[in-house]
Design a protein around this nucleic acid. Sequence first.
RNA 1: GGGGCCGUGGUGUAGCUUGGCAGCACUCCACCUUGGGGUGGUGGCAACCGGGGUUCGAAUCCUCGCGGCCCCA
Length: 496
Amino acid sequence: MSSENKGEKSRVENLDVEQGQEILPEQLTARKTDFSKWYNQVIQLAGLIDKRYNVKGCFVWLEYGYSVMLNIKKHWDELFKKAGIKELYFPLLVPLEYAKQNNDWFEGFKDQAFWVKGGVEGGEQYILRPTGEPAMYPMFKLWIRTHKDLPLRVYETVSSFRYETKHTRPLIRDREITVWHEIHTAHASKLEADEEAKLHEKLYDELWRVIAVKPLKVWKPKWEVFPGAIGAIEYYAIMPDGRALENGSINLLGQAYAKKFGITFKDANGEEKFAWQVCTGNGARLLVAAIATHGDDRGLVLPPRIAPIKVVIVPILFKDAKREVETLALEVSEMLSKAGIENVVDLNDETPGSKFYYWELKGVPLRIEIGPEELNTGELTIFKRNDYKKLRVAKQQVVDVVKKLLVQIQEELLVKASEAFEKSFVEVNSKQELVEAVNNKKVAVVHWCGSGDCWDEIKNLAEGVELFGTDLKPSKGKCVICGKECNSKGYVAKTY
RNA sequence: GGGGCCGUGGUGUAGCUUGGCAGCACUCCACCUUGGGGUGGUGGCAACCGGGGUUCGAAUCCUCGCGGCCCCA
C-alpha cells in the first residue's frame, strides 16, 4: 500500500463475511462443501463458458471467459517468443500416412481419435490431431537436413481432439481441448535438448506466477512416458479437494520420435544423426488452476494479471444526486482508462448490492463505489475482491492507488495460494499414515524405491489414489512399502 | 474397459411409484417503486432431451440414441 494511505488504515473495514453470516450468490454451492459442484457452477454463472453445447466434451467460450483465457495465452506468446521460439500453425487434419509413421503412437491413439472423411460416401480419411507430433514431425523431417538447421524451436496454439468416451469435465477433460499450446524443439545433442528443457521449466514457472498459483513439479513415473523417451517433468495443481490436476508437461523425448519419423541431420563430419527432441505443452488447465485456487464462495477471484476487467465502478444512485454521481463515476473511469487500466462503469438500473454480487461472482479484482458520500468527502471507496477489505482514497490518487493495489493483490494471491499449497502435503512413513493422509484430502509424500510392485501396492492402498510423480530433488529414505533404502520421494493422491 | 444415478421453460425444481388440463421459485420483458450488500409490486413471455414402441390417452411404462453426474479398473 502506498505511504500516503497508511494513515488511512483505521478506515479499513472488514465486511462481516468470516462470521458465517455470508449470503451466497444465488445457486452457487459453497466451495468447501462440494468443490466439484462449485466448479461446475461457477464457470457457467460467472460467464466464462456455456457448457450447454450438445456435444459431449465441448463447450462455448463466452466473451468474458475467452478474454481471461486469451490473457493467459498473451503471456505465453510473449514468453515463448522472447525466448526465440517461433509460432507456427499446423493443420488439424492429420493424414493417416503421417499418423502411422509412429506405430506405437498410432496404436495408442487410434481408438481415441476422431476419424474424418471427406464427403458422405468414401472420400479421403484423416484423423483430427489428438497430439501435435504426427502433424509436425513429418514437416520437421523436411525442414531439418544439416546441423545448421538446428536447433529447430517452434510452438503452436491449437485445439487437440480426443474421443473421450467416459466422464468429461469442462476445461479439465474435453473432447476438443481448446487454447492448447505445444512447444516442439529439435537439437543436435542430448546436452542441448536438456538445456532446452530447463528453459521450458523457467518459462512455465513464470506462467504460474502469472496465474499466482504455486505448482507441484514432479518426474512422471518411467512407465508413463512415451515409449523410448527419457523422461518427463510434469506440473500439477493441487485442487482444494486434495486431488492433483496434471497441468503441463515437459517431455524429454530423446531420439524416440526422431527415429520413428526419420528426423535426421548431417553433423559437421557429414555423419547422419537423429535429432534430440523436447516437447512441452499445456493450455486451459492453467485457467482451471487459477479458478480453483483463488475462488471463494462468492465466485471467481481473478489474479489482476489475467483479469480482463481490473476495476468495476459502481455508482450508488439516489434520485437527488444521480447526475453528479454518474458524472464522477465516468470521470474516474476516464482517469483509469487513460492510465491503461481496464475498467467498466455499471450504470444498470439495479440496486448496488445486486451489482456487488454480480461483479464479485465474475472475480473483478477491485471495485470503486461512488455515491453521495463520495461526492461530499471527495474520497472514493475501493473494495478488494480477494480479502473483502475496503479503503478510502482521494480522487486525485485513485490511479496510483489502483495500480499499486493490483500489484499487491497479485502478490497476496500468490502468498495465500502458496500457504494453502504447503498445507496440502503430509509426509508419511507408513501405509496407515498414507491412507489416513489421502482420506484427509491431503497429498501424501512418501519415500518410494521406484519399483513397479511397490507402485502397484500403493495404488491398492486406497480408492482411486496413485503415486503420480516423484520429487525433482533426490531424497534419502526407506520405501514406504518394501522398506528398501531409496533416494526419491513420491506424491500420492487422487488425480483428476 | 466395468458398474450406478439422472435428463421437465434460460436456471433450480414439483409431478413419474398408481398413465388423464404440467405446478412452484428465480431469471427475462413491460410499467411503477426502490437504491451504501440481492428493494417491493402488478402484468407478461417461456418447458416435458430426441427417435421408436405400448395405450383411447405418455413427462410418467418399454426400447434405442444423445447428453449430464458419480464410483471402480
